[in-house]
């Protein structure tokens, strides 16, 4: 049996318990919600994951860095913890729930430490170590949240304005929603790139899905049209609905000599006409 060293090193005690009784700790942790809820396919995977965490905590304790959230040993479990946090978040758990689940890991460890050692030093050290783990998990949860928002924002920027090829040499972007400067930038870059990649001579900006055109949106449209022209392609703005046409006129916005069409279909017909393709409506 381990007893508290004369130097009073609780850290060493905890390290030793985690090393010699790691399997036991891992078995008990595997049944707790944190692991059970994530490793739903089988208990073995939960035990293995718990054991991985036990080994890392043992090393953190062995190096005497009980209160150090940036202990290098934690780095090794960070990806695994991040996966666990992400999995719990996806299934609807809040940050508070996740940290409460981490806190639940403490009790079985304390029981085993108490059984294996006599003094209080080991228990105090175990409490400290588990508190540090909780902080590490909170940090991970926060950075995962921020990353998720960034990722979703980036995806939204791309998804909401895909550049599509309508015909050989004809590309179109159906714009949907409010155009802010970040989105316009993305649209413009994607459109110009598509013009190069597909060697397109016509680009259609369709604004059917844009709820309002004010002076700022108009400026974005004008700049995009100008950039398309600088690439040697022609630009058509389509999907100008009656209410949008009226507000554009009342604002006094001059779309200059940019070609406009009421619908995307009209714009395509125009583009095909320019390209020398005639559209024949079949009979029957």
């Amino acid at each position: 049996m381990t007893s508290v060293g004369s130097d009073g090193s609780g850290a060493a005690t905890v390290a030793q318990v985690l090393e010699t009784r790691g399997e036991q700790v891992a078995q008990q942790w595997a049944d707790l919600p944190l692991f059970r809820n994530v490793y739903t396919t089988g208990r073995d995977a939960a035990v293995a994951a718990a054991h991985r965490l036990v080994r890392v905590l043992a090393e953190v304790a062995r190096h005497g860095r009980l209160d150090d959230t940036s202990a290098p040993d934690f780095e090794r479990v960070r990806p695994h913890l991040a996966q666990t946090v992400t999995a719990r978040t996806r299934s609807g758990a809040t940050h508070q729930q996740i940290t409460a689940e981490v806190a639940e890991l403490k009790r079985p460890l304390l029981e085993i430490v108490a059984r294996e050692t006599g003094g209080a030093d080991g228990a105090v050290a175990a409490v400290e170590l588990m508190g540090t783990l909780r902080v590490v998990v909170v940090e991970i949860a926060l950075s995962e949240g921020a990353e998720l928002i960034d990722r979703q924002r980036a995806q939204l920027l791309e998804i909401s304005n895909p550049v599509i090829k309508l015909w050989d040499g004809v590309v179109a972007v159906p714009l949907i929603g409010t155009l802010d400067s970040a989105r316009t930038q993305v649209v413009m870059e994607a459109l110009l790139q598509a013009i190069v990649d597909q060697n397109a001579g016509m680009a259609i900006l369709d604004i059917t899905g844009v709820p309002m055109v004010d002076t700022v949106v108009a400026q974005y449209l004008l700049k995009t049209a100008m950039a398309v022209r600088l690439m040697g392609a022609e630009c058509v703005i389509s999907g100008i609905r009656p209410q949008i046409a009226q507000t554009i006129v009342q604002l006094g916005i001059d779309l200059g000599d940019i070609t406009t069409r009421a619908t995307l279909a009209d714009a395509l017909k125009w583009a095909l006409g320019k390209a020398g393709v005639s559209v024949v409506v079949g009979e029957g």
Binding site: M212, V213, D214, Q243, I244, Q246, L251
Partner: peptide, 17 residues
């Protein structure tokens, strides 16, 4: 109406900016 909505929303956008 839709036209009336769009006009007041557009005016609001300009003045708010």
């Amino acid at each position: 109406s839709l036209v009336e909505q769009t006009k007041i929303v557009t005016a609001a956008s300009e003045l708010a900016r």
